[in-house]
Nucleic acid binder design. Structure first.
Length: 498
RNA sequence: GGCGACGUGGCCAAGUGGUAAGGCAAGGGUCUGCAAAACCCUGACCACGGGUUCGAAUCCCGUCGUCGCCUCCA
């Protein structure tokens, strides 16, 4: 079986064959850094992070570039609005986004090119386009000559004639054709500018991506990604520019993620219906957002709602349930229970690969993981020991890791001070219980929260054996106040964060 | 107006020609001192109307609805 990817360019799902065996070059359009990013941007980064992780899992050496557009009208506008300069404003939001990516467990790209660092390349490319007649100068601006391409519109499925029909094309007498787009923009007074043969100015938006791809990945790449709102005009224009210069097909596969929606519309700055990444992470885990993304097809829109987030959190709990240690006092499961577990663990990997090979069908891949979790829990209930559970849990961790889920990273120590207070409280109520005095004493001398919890569960065992139900319930309630969930089973008690 | 996507159980959603994955929620049960968790059981004729086919959620046509792009946008 081979990996198959839906290609926007051909509108078909095609078998993926990299240009160079074993290597994948992937370019993904990143944000324009003029404001804090929202979870729609995060969705895009997550989608391509999953693709990249899976390609690497599949054995490919992935060269992954994601750009930052750090000079454009909006940045200039935002900077003048707050009285700062465009460069430092862009720098600020780049740093912020980089931090978000890290928190979201997105693997670092191989390179993060920026428009302002590619100026020389861009000028050189524009010059070549002019030489070839692919572009023309108009009062300091340089425009790409769209009518020169007989296949302009092939990505978005538009024809130039159709675009005339649209009423929203601005009239500009300097352009030969209304759809001609700027590859170089003359600077207005006070704007950031670079010297060029056509006068001071800055690159147009589309040219920067072509330049960065050429500079960092080559004239031909395997995968070009981005949100589906970029298909036209951005990616269409990238193709036009790049192919006019190289004379070769630009990207083999065009992957586009669907839009994050909120209250029935695309989440965007201009509509104002957005949740920033920061706002999301203040309330929810990075895994939760990733889970939401994984549960759907990356190509389809994802409608955000509190309920959907909650469902994602619960689904994560379920996955994590498969990673719990054996029940206290587990004595080993019967042979057939272990055989069933082993069979499921061994079947999981190929099933996962089959799902992901089908255009990164992460929802189907998750189903494989949930099936594995059920089998692990079944074995645990049947008395499997940690050693018996471990191989299947290792598979679960490995495969969830391919999706970028961390599952276990949330581990932390309980607060020792609060636990000591609880020990003192219990000691008061247990006054005269000589059998438990030793455990209480041991608990008092523990310094770490984790060790204290071991003692507390020991204590709980003694209390339950004496059927001091009111006290054992009180103990559980107190711990729950700190988010510690105590779970009792026949062999003893265990705890986890809840 | 042009191009495109989508409409599957209460919610999220996979499946795109052979008789509907998975998750969440809900109800019942097992286990438990109780609880929680886990495990077991229970639910859909796939927007609507035609058509093609031995057979369609899955292909074609139409209708309704939702969304995206056509301007900056992940």
């Amino acid at each position: 079986m081979a990996l198959r990817i839906y290609n926007t360019l051909t509108r078909r799902t095609e078998e993926f064959t990299p240009l160079e065996p074993g290597m994948v070059s992937m370019y993904v359009c990143g944000p324009t850094v003029y404001a804090s990013a929202h979870i729609g941007h995060a969705m895009s980064s997550l989608v391509f992070d999953v693709a990249r992780r899976y390609l690497e899992y599949r054995g490919y050496d992935v060269r992954h570039a994601m750009n930052y557009t750090d000079v454009d009208d909006k940045i200039i506008q935002a900077a003048s609005g707050e009285g700062s300069d465009p460069t430092s404003l862009a720098e600020h939001y780049i740093e912020e986004y980089a931090q978000h990516l890290q928190e979201l467990n997105v693997l670092p790209a191989t390179v993060y090119p920026r428009a302002t660092q590619e100026i020389d390349n861009i000028i050189e490319m524009v010059a070549r386009m002019l030489e070839q007649g692919a572009a023309y100068v108009a009062e300091g601006d340089v425009y790409y000559r769209v009518e020169r391409d007989e296949d302009y519109g092939k990505l978005s499925g538009r024809k130039l004639e159709d675009m005339h029909a649209g009423a929203r094309i601005e009239v500009d007498d300097r352009k030969e054709h209304p759809m001609d787009f700027a590859v170089w923009k003359a600077a207005k007074p006070g704007e950031p500018a670079w010297e060029s043969p056509w006068g001071p100015g800055r690159p147009g938006w589309h040219i920067e991506c072509s330049a960065m791809v050429f500079a960092h990945l080559g004239e031909q790449i395997d995968i070009h990604g981005g949100g589906n709102d970029l298909i036209f005009p951005h990616h269409e224009n990238e193709i036009a520019q790049s192919e006019s210069l190289s004379g070769k097909p630009f990207a083999q596969v065009w992957m586009h993620n669907g839009m994050m929606q909120l209250s029935g519309e695309k989440m965007s700055k201009s509509l104002g219906n957005l949740i920033t990444i920061r706002e999301f992470l203040e309330k929810h885990s990075a895994d939760a957002l990733r889970m939401m993304v994984l549960n759907t097809s990356y190509r389809h829109p994802l409608t955000y709602s509190d309920e959907v987030v909650e469902q994602a959190e619960r689904a994560l709990d379920r996955l994590r349930s498969g990673l719990r240690p054996a029940l206290p006092g587990a004595a080993g499961a019967a042979a057939e229970a272990l055989a069933a577990l082993q069979a499921r663990a061994e079947a999981a990997q190929p099933a996962f690969v089959a799902a992901m090979d089908d255009d990164f069908n992460s929802a189907a891949a998750l189903a494989v993981l949930f099936d594995l979790v059920r089998q692990i829990n079944l074995a645990r209930d049947a008395g499997a020991t940690d050693a018996e559970l471990e191989p299947a849990q290792a598979v679960l961790l490995e495969l969830s890791g391919v999706l970028g889920l961390r599952l276990k990273d949330a581990e932390r120590e309980p607060e020792a001070a609060a636990l000591h207070a609880l020990v003192d409280e219990l000691a008061g109520e247990l006054d005269g219980q000589t059998e438990l005095a030793a455990v209480l004493q041991a608990a008092r001398s523990e310094q770490s929260g984790a060790a204290l919890m071991v003692r507390l569960l020991e204590l709980r065992k003694g209390i339950r054996e004496q059927k001091l139900w009111a006290l054992s319930d009180k103990m559980r309630d107190r711990l729950a106040e700190q988010g510690i969930l105590v779970e009792d089973s026949a062999g003893g008690s265990s705890w986890r964060w809840g």
